[in-house]
């Protein structure tokens, strides 16, 4: 397994995209390889930074959507 595909797998592990078998194999590799653990920690750190960037829509937008839903409900009846 080359380095790039291992790094790709670390990304997939981080986003829970690996199968159980793939996950177990990679976790075993990580236990024997400190560099892999460091790379995984870097991914998780950047994800923590990304989690700071969360925005909410204006409540008016949600009100408009719900009104639109009720209007279309009335039209169908």
């Amino acid at each position: 397994m080359n380095n790039t595909s291992t790094l790709n797998q670390l990304l997939q592990l981080s986003y829970s995209e690996l199968s159980k078998n793939e996950e177990d194999t990679l976790l075993n590799d990580m236990m024997r390889n400190e560099d892999l653990c460091d790379s995984y920690a870097i991914i998780e750190n950047i994800k923590t930074v990304l989690n700071q960037e969360i925005h909410s829509p204006n409540p008016t937008s949600i009100k408009i959507i719900l009104e639109e839903s009720q209007r279309s409900e009335l039209e169908t009846h």
């Binding site: 969360i54 925005h55 909410s56 829509p57 949600i62 959507i65 719900l66």
Partner: peptide
């Protein structure tokens, strides 16, 4: 909508 609004927005 409330469950997914922040991610979508």
């Amino acid at each position: 909508i409330n469950k997914h609004k922040n991610k979508v927005f």
